[in-house]
């Protein structure tokens, strides 16, 4: 019901992909490990992240300046990433991995703000744990805190426009945001390590095979958890969420913050 034709086809492709890949090689992974990306790529991905991070700082400052009360939602979004990305979860493929948790922040605060929250978590994991790394921080930030959230944010907007049930929209947004993170990680590795036979594409498929089977069930769990936390927030912090639940809210500041991302001009549309 809630799925559009395009979404349904994406879902089908992913299911087939997951099944095929499952037969080839079960394993799970998350971030690119320290030292596993050639220096020039580390720098390149870091540079790509920079504009997002700078925009993120500006966006966060503006959000908090306009409405101090949103700090609590921001803290919760960040904390959600902390919790979700620290839990390694087993899957039916005999491997384990963890989720990203960035969908919630992307839906509430937009992509650029999320990039900051995500990077904080990545730095924590890179320094305290041998998980991810400082040299690969740029690449990991791009996949987990920018690319994934971008998909989540876009799907959330699209779902809202198409008047899909909001919980279904949130579920889909968070789920595909998580999945896309791993697609990007695979491509990042493939770009750095093209296969001798098939080049970047063949290599990308190989890396996807490592990530996809583990990540599909986890993405579903992440979708469910994101829906749950938003349901919880709705019942107790509707003031802050006003922009999210109804565009005609009496809280314009919350509305603006919700639109953060980069679509400043879109405000007019949703206020009609």
């Amino acid at each position: 019901m809630g799925y559009s034709k395009a979404e349904r086809s994406v879902l089908t492709v992913l299911c087939v992909l997951a099944l095929v890949l499952f037969l080839s090689r079960p394993a799970g992974a998350m971030h690119i490990m320290e030292g596993y990306l050639p220096p020039q790529y580390c720098v390149a991905w870091g540079v790509v992240c920079l504009p997002f991070l700078v925009l993120g700082v500006m966006s966060l400052r503006r959000t908090l300046k306009e409405n101090r009360r949103l700090l609590i939602l921001l803290a919760m979004s960040g904390a959600f990433i902390f919790v979700i990305s620290s839990l390694k979860i087993p899957t039916f493929f005999g491997s384990s991995s963890h989720m990203t948790g960035t969908g919630l922040a992307a839906i509430l605060f937009g992509v650029t703000s999320t990039s900051i929250l995500g990077m904080i978590v990545l730095i924590f994991q890179a320094v305290m744990l041998a998980h991810g790394g400082i040299t690969t921080l740029g690449a990991n930030t791009f996949s987990m805190a920018i690319a994934g959230p971008m998909v989540a944010w876009f799907l959330f907007k699209a779902g809202n426009k198409l008047k899909v049930n909001r919980m279904v929209t949130i579920f889909i947004a968070a789920m595909f945001g998580d999945l896309f993170t791993y697609c990007v990680t695979s491509v990042q590795l493939a770009l750095a390590y093209p296969s001798q036979v098939g080049g970047v594409a063949a290599s990308a498929i190989k890396f996807l095979a490592v990530y996809a089977p583990t990540q599909v069930p986890l993405a579903i769990v992440e979708g469910i958890l994101t829906v749950l936390i938003i349901m919880g927030l709705e019942s107790i912090s509707s003031g802050e969420l006003a922009g999210l639940s109804s565009p005609k809210s009496a809280e314009p500041s919350a509305d603006i913050s919700f639109k953060k991302g980069k679509m400043e001009g879109e405000n007019d549309e949703s206020n009609n």
Binding site: A27, G28, A29, M30, H31, I32, M33, E34, G35, Y36, P38, P39, K88, P90, T91, G94, S95, S96, S97, A126, V127, L129, A130, H131, G132, G133, I134, T135, T185, L189, Y193, S195, Q196, S203, K206, F207, V210, Y211, T214
Partner: peptide, 27 residues
């Protein structure tokens, strides 16, 4: 339920065909 980062790193070795030497160590 192993995996996590190791699997991806092993894949790097497989694709590059040989032992890959990470050029940095975790902090």
């Amino acid at each position: 339920f192993g995996g996590s980062d190791e699997a991806g790193s092993q894949m790097v070795e497989q694709v590059t065909g040989g032992q890959y030497q990470p050029w940095a160590k975790p902090v």
